[in-house]
């Protein structure tokens, strides 16, 4: 399988929560930017984030002038009775000149296929298409051009998928890490009534309460204690699946440690596996963070494509003190 000449040059897909972050990411070397509208049609519906139509048009103009693409995420599941808001988002994205829309809901994909046939359609990770048959369904039925793969797959499984499917694949390489199949998790709903699928948020800050209890800081999400930290230790944000709980007589991180994803050293293996695009998570992060992460991954991808090794400490300072993991890409994670 030694065929360096036919190696695909992977596309670096970078987050932009604001117009300023979009410009920053383009200038730092992003091949494509993904962003969303300022409402619940996208899965990063946080206060102060995202784009209105004019900002999107300007952002797309800026990116296109510099050879970068803009992908618009419309990847929540429409509320019954309110589907026009999601339909309008697709029309607005097309009108603004988006290079593709990233969709999760089957009904919205069907609508887009019918009403906007020439608009390129990517399948969001929230649709959780996790094997070649499911992907084939989306490609054959709706002309999906690229599937963002759920973070439950190992590198060999990703390679096997690419050998079978007739569309591009995109994988997450850095940032927040879902441990559940994305788009199939109602844990946040259970604790707060707000969920990624319905409202575009997970473990939202509006439901976080910190309280001192003796020598411990208690971090609660809704009514539930997600973690307790001794005085003086850094208290992690109470993301539900990264909390500490008691199960089977032991106390610990039942689902996942408070880690984030860093697959920079897997870039060669993922290129070899036929992945088309590498995605960086973090539309909610600062411009400085976006700049640093995009620049690091630009260099890592360029180094690899030029036959140079990827520096071992490439991303160490970017995780901001957090422990990182290669997640499901390594089979032992399971």
């Amino acid at each position: 399988m030694n065929a360096p000449l036919t190696k695909i040059r992977p596309e670096l897909v970078c987050p932009a929560g604001t117009p300023a972050a979009l410009r920053t990411a383009v200038e730092a070397g992003a091949d494509a930017i993904y962003c969303g509208f300022r409402d619940e049609t996208n899965a990063r519906n946080f206060p102060g984030l995202n784009f209105d139509q004019r900002e999107l048009e300007e952002g797309i103009r800026f990116a296109h002038q510099r050879g970068a693409k803009v992908l618009v995420a419309i990847n929540t599941f429409p509320q019954a009775g309110r589907t026009p808001l999601w339909h309008e988002a697709v029309a607005k994205a097309e009108g603004a000149g988006a290079d593709a829309v990233i969709l999760a809901d089957l009904g919205l994909v069907a609508h887009t296929t019918e009403k906007h046939p020439t608009l390129r359609r990517h399948l969001s990770v929230q649709a959780a298409a996790a094997n070649p048959d499911a992907i084939r369904f989306w490609v054959e039925t709706f002309g999906i051009r690229r599937v963002v793969l759920p973070r439950v797959l190992s590198v060999p499984e990703i390679a096997a998928i690419n050998a079978e499917v007739a569309c591009e694949t995109e994988v997450f390489v850095f940032g927040g890490l879902c441990v559940m199949a994305e788009g199939r998790c109602s844990l946040s709903s259970h604790a707060t009534g707000k969920s990624p699928n319905m409202t575009g948020v997970c473990s939202p800050p509006s439901h976080v309460v910190y309280a001192q209890d003796g020598d411990e800081l208690v971090a609660k999400l809704g009514a539930y204690t997600i973690d307790r930290t001794p005085k003086g230790e850094a208290a992690p944000y109470p993301t539900l699946c990264k909390g500490r709980f008691s199960a089977g007589g032991t106390i610990g991180h039942v689902f996942e440690d408070p880690v984030s994803l860093d697959a920079v050293q897997l870039i060669p293996a993922l290129v070899e596996a036929g992945v088309t695009a590498f995605k960086i998570e973090g539309r909610q992060r600062s411009r400085a963070y976006t700049q640093a992460v995009v620049a690091a991954f630009r260099k890592a991808v360029d180094d690899h494509m030029a036959g140079r090794p990827i520096a071992a400490d490439m991303t160490r300072r970017l995780a901001e003190g957090q422990t990182t993991t290669a997640g499901a890409y390594k089979k032992t994670w399971r």
Binding site: R151, V152, A181, R184, C185, S186, L187, F255, E256, R334
Partner: peptide, 9 residues
């Protein structure tokens, strides 16, 4: 049922 994962808890 609230979630499904690749990992066995």
């Amino acid at each position: 049922p609230l979630a499904i994962s690749g990992r066995c808890y």
